[in-house]
Every structure is written in C-alpha cells, then in structure tokens.
Computed example of a mutant assay.
Amino acid sequence: MALKTRLRTAGRLLLLATALLATYLVSTAIAARIALRALEVRVPNLQGQALNDATASLMELGLRLRVEEQRRTDTRDAAGHIAVQHPEAGANARRGRNVRVWLSEGARTNIVPRLVGETERMAIAHLEQDGVRLAAMSEVRTDAYPTGMVVAQDPPPDSTGNAVSVLLNRGERGATYLMPDLIGVNGARAADVLRERGFRVAVVGQHPYPGVPPGVVLRQSPEAGFRIGPGEPISIEVSR
C-alpha cells in the first residue's frame, strides 16, 4: 500500500510540474509577443514631404529613411519631394527598420513639336511620339491651304507644354443646290436639265396614274428642299 501511495503522489507531482511548465511556456510566448509588439510602430504618411521633414518624422519613431535612386514622374508632388514609400502609410514596422522612398521628379514638361504643314495623321502621330496631348482640333474650309493640312497651332512650336490645339483645313466645300420640286413636271425634260448641271438622273419606275399623261414625275428622291451637290444621284418615278 505504501508503494502505491508513493506512486500516486509521484504521478500527481509529475502532472503538476508538467502543467506548471506549460503555463510558463505559454506565459513566456505571450510576453515575447507583447515585447515584440512594443517594438513595432505605425509608419507615417511621407508622401509629398521634403527629405528633412520625412527624416525627422521617422527618427521620432525609431525608423530610418532610405532614398532609392530611381525617381518617379508625378504631377502631384514637387520635384525632390517624396512620391512613393514602402511600407505604405499605416503599416506596422519594427523600430530600426528602413522605410524606402522614391522622390518625385515633378510633372513632365514636353517640348511642343511643329505641326503646321503636317497632315492630320502625321500631326497626331508626332504628338503621340513626343508625349503631348491633343487638346482640341478646330476646322476651317479654305482653298488657301491643301486639304487635310494643319494651318495653325497653339501653343507655338518649341514651347513647353503638355497639350496643344490645332486648326485643320478640311478644304473648300463645293457648290450645293436645293433639290427642286419635280412632282407634276415632265420627267424627260427635268432629267435633261439636271444632267446638264452635272447630276446623275435615273428613271427607276413607271406607274399608271389615272388622269395624268405619260412621263409626268410622280415621286422623286431626294425630296424637294434637300441640299445636293453636282454628281449626286437623283431618282424619279414617272407615270405611264
């Protein structure tokens, strides 16, 4: 009996020691995690700041600034100020860690190319090649310049800018006429007059119409009042 009692006591002591050891290990792990958390800080937002200001902000938190060589084209931040950072603002970082930053080289400024005298297609290709945006394209119709040529631009060539407006000549518009009302007139006579003026006239149908003599125009296309130019087709239907 004494031996069994001793064994039970030893077993209980062993279980108690194991439980105490497990409790110690868990407490140690929690304490280590808390200690590590105490070493972490929240990364501030450095975008747009000058290097001196960013360095001072990081030093207060125990972080270090590392400036990367490559710069970023940025229209929001002034040249020499921070454009991008890593880790991002709001992330957790251990004290002593580097925060990498890329400086802005400022908004890109382009040289406006010479577009006057170029065709529309060549002008657009030239702008795309030089990174300049086409802000607006206005049109003029004149015989003073070749059709499809750029005749003016703003700003002028060799100036600095990121956008340009151009004036394009679409060519002088040819003479136009109002389509006359042919209904009720002799179709053959109307066709002869229109053909003499350069129009293409075709009789596309003949229909019986009580009380109307043969050859009188019943329908026409385009209708009366439409504006047409020489060479455009005109179709008529006459009575038979």
Score class of each variant (00 low, 15 high):
201 V>D: 10
116 V>G: 01
199 F>Q: 07
98 N>R: 11
185 V>Q: 13
227 R>W: 06
202 A>P: 02
212 V>T: 14
17 A>I: 10
48 G>Q: 07
119 T>S: 15
152 A>C: 07
223 E>H: 06
19 A>L: 14
62 G>L: 10
116 V>Q: 07
91 A>L: 09
82 I>E: 00
159 S>Q: 15
27 S>K: 09
107 A>P: 08
195 R>Y: 01
37 R>Q: 13
60 E>D: 14
149 M>Q: 15
43 V>K: 00
54 A>S: 08
111 I>K: 09
84 V>L: 14
95 R>F: 02
71 R>T: 15
87 P>W: 02
131 G>R: 02
130 D>Q: 15
42 R>Q: 12
212 V>C: 05
228 I>A: 06
198 G>F: 06
23 T>H: 05
182 L>D: 05
93 A>T: 08
221 S>M: 05
95 R>D: 05
130 D>N: 13
107 A>Q: 13
125 A>G: 06
81 H>C: 09
112 V>R: 00
122 M>T: 13
238 V>R: 01
135 A>P: 02
40 E>V: 03
226 F>E: 09
165 S>L: 01
3 L>T: 14
152 A>F: 07
156 P>F: 02
128 E>D: 11
213 P>T: 13
23 T>Q: 08
139 E>F: 11
88 E>M: 09
3 L>F: 11
185 V>D: 08
166 V>T: 02
34 I>N: 12
163 A>C: 06
113 P>F: 01
77 D>S: 11
205 G>C: 00
51 L>A: 00
26 V>T: 14
115 L>Y: 03
177 Y>H: 11
216 V>N: 05
103 L>K: 07
164 V>Y: 00
211 G>Y: 06
202 A>W: 03
76 R>V: 07
215 G>M: 06
204 V>M: 09
6 R>L: 14
140 V>Y: 03
236 I>W: 04
47 Q>Y: 00
225 G>I: 06
110 N>L: 08
201 V>R: 13
208 P>L: 05
6 R>I: 08
197 R>K: 15
80 G>Y: 05
192 D>P: 00
137 M>T: 07
161 G>W: 00
46 L>D: 04
95 R>I: 06
207 H>T: 13
95 R>E: 08
226 F>G: 01
218 L>I: 09
194 L>H: 02
110 N>I: 00
152 A>M: 10
4 K>W: 06
33 R>H: 14
224 A>G: 10
172 E>K: 15
195 R>D: 11
130 D>W: 05
136 A>P: 00
98 N>F: 15
52 N>K: 12
137 M>L: 13
206 Q>Y: 08
76 R>D: 09
187 G>Y: 06
157 P>Q: 12
184 G>F: 04
